[in-house]
Design a protein around this nucleic acid. Structure first.
Lengths: 341, 341
DNA sequence: ATTGGCACTCGGAACCGGCGAGTGCCAGGA
DNA sequence: TCCTGGCACTCGCCGGTTCCGAGTGCCAAT
């Protein structure tokens, strides 16, 4: 069905179309690639490829364009992830090296990815549920109000203020702080509920109501509402090729990008930091992204599942090998930096 | 030069053009507005307005379109800020009311603004330099490393890790924490350097090197690099009217929006929270925004200068009265909420 | 199986003419 | 002096027509 030459033809079509953005015909194909056969032969192969749904012609008497299925085959069987140039590697290192805190790391990463790939970059903050508690701080604001500040080992800081049913002294707050930390410092967030469940009973009755209130806030905020955060950069790249890549308009794409839920779903299926996942055109879950492709992977894996995901989004007409290489490289460096810091 | 009727004509042109997005001619103008004069008279006025640069015709034998100068006159002299409907007010209250922390307030605000105005919304986080220190927390990570966490009265939390020249015990860290807080808790960030300057000399010599390191980090992070943060929402609204509003392409606009520096400059000139500032077309500092208008104001003013700015960005062809009303109303509610929380 | 030849298709560019919205100007009237 | 109706003029837009050529599918020959 699909002999080697047909695959070569498909590869050539994809590569040409990606670089020229014009439907590619049999003639130009044999000119630009050493296929060793005549245009007529290529035409036969193209007819077969079209029959199988890998390519299509926008209109009669025009060249062929890869379909989603064609890109899929290309990505799965014919492309190898392209390693970065050493200049690019150095750029990554120096650019990410100067980061001072987590916000900075994430911010630099997303801008770097956008610049390297000329696409829209998406970076997810390290997942709270997969992080551990470094420290829980209680800051008295007034006698009936404290600020709960939770710091994770990945550098995330979350905070909420809690109204207390009974006034607390500074010493009592300090006591509570110690009690909380001795129980959950170092524990994974996912394990926090179990470790805190019997805390109200373990404190003197006078504190019980307050402890219950604080505990409830901690749990609600940090476990039940994991509030995964996602940041974007490079949305201007969507408009790079004029209306060529996103024919209707880029509006549905921008809308999809603003829906956190959609973005998070793009990373939901990522289960390890080794492979780069590619989702092409109508494979995407959200209708607004049916003209786009997403190249994503996990980062910050410590053996098992990754801390979070990152990736880029662009037109289906995309340089997959190069993009995959950039995404993989950046993910590795970020993981490395987080492990050090 | 500009009698009352000419102003009425200009107002009518602006209003019609904003609502129809088509160059408006003398005939349609007298139909839709009660000007009480004939098209011919209006034509004469239009010729005068064009002479003075308030309107222009895209090409001969087309209607007139307001220029930047025309919009400016309209905003300055002919439009009053349109108050919101009570339904809109209720929507604002209920939408912003549920916020749990600062991130949430800012996030909800920016989405609300985008939705109310159908433009791109921009919200600046409360300025660090104008905030006060609520609490400075030192969290030991290892014996030679501590995490500095600063919490402001506006709810912002900033954190950095510091490598210590000498190891510190937990008790010593606690001691430092007390020393720092007794000096700067409650102080404005801008005043922090002065209050900390002699701290290294006031501690036992064994701690001196560490105190110097921590102090340096605190100052560097929070004063010298105030790192103002800005968030966006509603970029999809740029593509709302197809290519009508941003003729070239929306790319330069998206690019400008990604440059924090540019955005921050838009708020730099805001000095009070009462007035709504409008910047039209080529009045904007950045070339990419020459086809756009910015409507901005301050929020969270506590008597003197506001904590930060917020606003929206859209095409120059914009409903200025309505947009100004929405921006002002949202700014007031946000200020209120921050004052309470 | 591959290839050169050939007739055919059809989108896009270029051209053209008519329509009509909109203008500027002018002369007459309040 | 200002307003108004009338009128000739301009020019962008729209629909129709023509023409060109890239690209195709098919077929007979190798």
């Amino acid at each position: 069905m699909l002999d080697d030459r047909k695959l070569s033809v498909l590869r050539a079509i994809v590569e040409d179309y990606v670089s020229t953005n014009e439907p590619v015909g049999s003639k130009t194909l044999v000119d630009r690639h050493q296929l060793g056969v005549s245009p007529a032969t290529v035409r036969n192969d193209m007819a077969a490829l079209e029959e199988d749904g890998y390519i299509t012609q926008p209109h009669t008497s025009a060249g062929r364009v890869p379909t989603d299925k064609g890109y899929r085959l290309f990505v799965d069987r014919m492309s190898s992830v392209k390693p970065l140039s050493s200049a690019e590697r150095r750029a990554i290192e120096s650019f990410l090296g100067g980061a001072v805190d987590l916000d900075d790391v994430v911010g630099r990463t997303v801008r770097l990815l956008a610049q390297l790939t000329h696409q829209v970059a998406v970076v997810q903050y390290p997942s709270l549920t997969r992080s551990s508690v470094r420290h829980l701080e209680l800051v008295p604001i007034s006698s009936t109000r404290v600020l709960v500040v939770l710091i994770t080992d990945t550098g995330r800081v979350e905070q909420r203020s809690v109204d207390l049913p009974d006034p607390l002294s500074e010493d009592e707050v300090a006591d509570l702080r110690t009690r909380f930390n001795s129980r959950i410092a170092g524990a994974r967030l996912a394990d926090a509920p179990a470790k805190l469940s019997d805390l109200p009973e373990a404190v003197p009755p006078t504190l019980r109501a307050d402890v219950t209130a604080v505990t409830a806030t901690v749990l609600e905020t940090l476990v039940e509402k994991p509030e995964e955060r996602v940041v974007l950069a490079g949305t201007a790249n969507l408009a790079r090729t004029g209306a060529l890549d996103f024919p209707r308009t880029i509006r549905p794409v921008l809308e999809a990008l603003e829906e956190q839920v959609v973005l998070l779903r793009l990373f939901g299926e990522i289960t390890d930091a080794q492979t780069v996942r590619v989702s092409i055109g109508e494979e995407n879950p959200h209708e607004g992204l049916w003209t786009a492709s997403v190249v994503a992977t996990g980062y910050g894996s410590e053996g098992d599942e990754p801390l979070a995901g990152l990736g880029v989004l662009g037109p289906t007409r995309m340089d997959y090998p190069g993009t995959m290489g950039a995404v993989r490289a950046v993910a590795r460096y970020v993981g490395q930096i987080l492990a050090e810091g």
